[in-house]
Design a protein around this nucleic acid. Structure first.
Ligand code: FES
Ligand code: FES
Lengths: 145, 145
DNA sequence: CTTGTAAAAGATAAAAAACTCTTTTATTTA
DNA sequence: TAAATAAAAGAGTTTTTTATCTTTTACAAG
């Protein structure tokens, strides 16, 4: 839960590309799919989308591939989530009411707001480039095997 | 996100029935659907399921309907969520890795664990019967209009 | 300027989730 | 015990999400 499958792949792919293109290299779609353990064509679609939204960059043809430029590295994980899943996770009601509000709160509102705000903070604080070191050092992973 | 639509309906329905059957009354499926603003047949299916799992009780025939007995009122919202969505929200990886673990954590693991634990605590602490007073007093709501 | 490469775009398919409809079973009451 | 009522059960449809396949476009190098 929390994120759609599409969004989970998206975050993992972006983090992967950020790490692999840190030195300016470009990363091919097959390598990305293998690197994050996702369906090739599916992650291709997702990256196409993120490319249009300028969260990742790409070039076609020989030596082409995906990469992430200096500016995009500063973007937050929240930008990825918003691009893929919209802002429901940041603003929506935990019990599915159409409008979350203080004036007509659901029974879980006050508790849920704390959770939602923590998610918001976490995703807004973390930038795309933040994970390279930890991945390089083998302290965290974005695929199973 | 966080919960499936089915689960959102389930929680709202259970809270609604708990409130309406506090005095021992039984609540019909149409009233429930109207009370939480959900599709009648859909919530019927959900309650059937929760009934088999003994989270709600029901009787057929005239004067029949759904209600929640004293024991079930003590159950937690986590019991509802587990029954409908399983335990992924409590144990799964935020980035969709098949196994969330300390030994092979995803880059968001430590942050995500805080969020997950807060969700866990919130849902385990709140019992089904906890919201009657607030609903009765008009301080919280489980439908929009 | 042709050939090979790699992403973009578009179309399609499979699976899961959300929702609906019909029939059956249990229960009450007249 | 027959009729009415209301949930249970089962089957079916629609929509959304996830995933795949094919064709086109862009680019680089020989
Ligand atoms: S109204 Fe439900 S979370 Fe705010
Ligand atoms: S491994 Fe991702 S949350 Fe634990």
């Amino acid at each position: 839960m929390v994120f759609s499958k599409t969004c989970e792949y998206a975050i993992r792919a972006v983090i992967y590309v950020a790490q692999k293109s840190e030195d300016g290299a470009k990363v091919g779609i097959k390598e990305i799919a293998a690197g994050i353990d996702s369906p090739v064509h599916f992650i291709a679609k997702i990256l196409q989308d993120l490319s249009k939204r300028e969260i990742v960059q790409s070039t076609k043809g020989p030596n082409g591939g995906f990469y992430i430029d200096k500016d995009s590295r500063k973007k937050s994980l929240a930008d990825i989530v918003t691009a893929i899943d919209g802002d429901r996770i940041f603003t929506g009601c935990g019990l599915g009411l159409k409008n979350c509000s203080e004036s007509k709160p659901c029974p879980l509102h006050s508790e849920f707001k704390i959770i939602r705000d923590k998610i918001k903070l976490t995703l807004h604080s973390a930038t795309i480039g933040d994970f390279n070191a930890s991945l390089n050092a083998g302290l965290s992973f974005i695929k199973e095997r």
